[in-house]
Amino acid sequence: MGVGNQQLDFAEFYRSAADGCLRAVLVSIGDQDTARDLVDEAFARAWASWPTVSKHPAPEAWVVRTALNAGISRWRRRRREVSVPDPDRVADLPAVGEASASLVDPRIMAALMRLPARQRQVIALRLILDLDTARTAEVLGIATGTVMAHLGRAMAALRHDLQPELQQENRS
């Protein structure tokens, strides 16, 4: 593939996959600004390795996995540099980034953030990115049965968390 075709090919992939990847990473980490930066970085790495990534069976899953890994790497670096916030102020911190609040449903995002990280990742890949169970298991490096178990628990927790609010919303 020539450089020009390669660039067009990547641009087409980016246009079709960027929104979904961003939403999946956002559901996984909760902060929109961070998610945007991580996804941009992951797509940049995808471009840098496009001849390889383009042959991946699910390149959008590669991007999401790369973004999540980059987030973990950043956290590992920064935890040595950032002091623990004053515990009295932690309760005042928003559950999600302020910039996220305008574009996401804060109740559902807050419920998602109460899930364990692995369950959020399964939700992101299965429900937001629409990967099947086998591909989700491959991306996360876990068994398909574990994916289904995480998804079932996550759905139950979300239903329990959101049902009273949604029922009240339906009544009013």
Partner: peptide, 19 residues
């Protein structure tokens, strides 16, 4: 409900900047 909760979130970074 979960999908709609983030449906308005869209990538705003131009592909040229990514490249």
């Amino acid at each position: 409900a979960v999908r709609e909760s983030v449906a308005d979130v869209r990538s705003a970074t131009p592909v040229a900047r990514i490249i």
